[in-house]
């Protein structure tokens, strides 16, 4: 390892007694304070805030209209155009999930089901939202385009059990997604 020796800057007298820098600092902080109080915080416009600071005042003001395309909210399962659940319980998301939030119980599709040829679907699919870190790796790893991070960010509950999303809840959040690659169409 090379040792890089840094030359300390030579300070002149004014810099050495430090007061100039102090006053500059006071001016800077006071500018921000005054602007905040006047409702004109820097960046308040772009961040859609109240102006008193750049913070959004939550229940009254919401992100909903300002969420970017790439926003990663709660993970959810989706169905395709024909209402088929896309998940085939390959358990890759369960495997990749860094905080181990996903738990899948696979099952076979009964032979009288219209989608019996897909053979496999999840019997249970639980995502523990107290564990989920919204990393999106489940979405990335899914070979069936079945799990997506939606824009839902208000995931609350009064009990731990409330925070575990079961299969039904996941499909409620996820809804239907059209125009995806469909491996299980009629040609197959």
């Amino acid at each position: 390892m090379a040792v890089v020796k840094l030359q300390r800057p030579k300070l002149n007298f004014g810099e050495k007694i430090y007061f100039g820098a102090l006053i500059k600092g006071f001016i800077l902080t006071m500018t921000h304070a005054v602007k905040s109080l006047l409702g004109k915080s820097v960046g308040a416009e772009t961040l859609a805030s109240s102006g008193l600071g750049v913070t959004m005042q939550f229940p009254e003001q919401r992100w909903d209209d300002h969420l970017p395309e790439y926003y990663r909210g709660a993970p959810a399962l989706v169905t395709d155009e024909q209402g088929r659940e896309r998940c085939v319980s390959c358990q890759l998301c369960e495997f990749i999930c860094p905080p181990k939030a996903i738990k899948i119980t696979p099952s076979e599709i009964p032979s009288d089901d219209p989608w019996a040829k897909v053979e496999k679907r999840p019997l249970e699919f639980d995502i523990d939202m107290t564990r989920c870190i919204y990393c999106g790796m489940c979405e990335e790893v899914c070979p069936e385009q079945a799990i997506y991070l939606r824009k839902d960010y208000l995931i609350t509950g009064l009990k731990r059990a409330d925070m575990v999303h079961n299969k039904k809840r996941l499909y409620e959040i996820g809804g239907t997604r059209v125009g995806l690659v469909n491996k299980w169409n009629e040609l197959k």
Binding site: L52, V54, T55
Partner: peptide, 11 residues
């Protein structure tokens, strides 16, 4: 509150 408005927050 003062630190908040200095830092463009609400407090």
């Amino acid at each position: 509150r003062f630190s908040a408005i200095i830092q463009d927050r609400v407090g």
